[in-house]
Amino acid sequence: MRGSIVWLSEHDSPDAFPPVDRALVEPDGLLAAGGDLSPTRLLAAYRRGIFPWYSRGQPILWWCPDPRAILLPNELKVSRSLLKSSRNRGFVTRMDTAFRDVIRACGSSELRPGGTWLSPEMRAAYIKLHKLGFAHSVETWLDGRLVGGLYGVAVGRIFFGESMFSTERDASKVALKRLCEELTDRGFHMIDCQMQTPHLMSLGARMIPRAEFTQVLEQHVHWDLEPKLWADPGNESALANV
Score class of each variant (00 low, 15 high):
3 G>R: 10
4 S>H: 10
4 S>I: 10
7 W>N: 12
7 W>E: 13
8 L>N: 04
10 E>Q: 13
14 P>D: 05
14 P>G: 07
14 P>E: 01
15 D>V: 01
17 F>V: 06
18 P>C: 00
19 P>I: 01
21 D>Q: 08
21 D>A: 02
24 L>S: 06
25 V>M: 00
27 P>V: 03
27 P>I: 04
27 P>E: 01
28 D>Q: 04
31 L>A: 04
32 A>E: 03
33 A>T: 01
33 A>C: 06
35 G>P: 12
36 D>A: 03
36 D>G: 02
38 S>Y: 07
38 S>L: 04
39 P>W: 00
40 T>L: 14
41 R>H: 13
41 R>T: 14
43 L>S: 12
43 L>D: 05
44 A>D: 13
45 A>Q: 08
47 R>K: 15
47 R>Y: 05
47 R>A: 14
48 R>T: 02
50 I>P: 11
51 F>A: 14
51 F>N: 07
51 F>H: 07
51 F>C: 12
52 P>S: 11
53 W>Y: 09
53 W>Q: 11
55 S>E: 14
55 S>F: 05
56 R>T: 15
57 G>C: 12
59 P>W: 09
60 I>F: 05
60 I>V: 13
64 C>M: 01
65 P>I: 02
65 P>Y: 07
66 D>G: 09
66 D>Q: 12
68 R>H: 10
70 I>Y: 06
71 L>R: 10
73 P>D: 08
73 P>K: 09
74 N>M: 06
75 E>D: 14
76 L>K: 09
76 L>M: 12
76 L>Y: 06
76 L>T: 11
77 K>T: 14
79 S>W: 10
79 S>K: 12
80 R>W: 06
81 S>K: 15
83 L>M: 11
84 K>D: 11
85 S>A: 15
85 S>R: 14
86 S>E: 14
87 R>A: 10
88 N>A: 11
88 N>K: 15
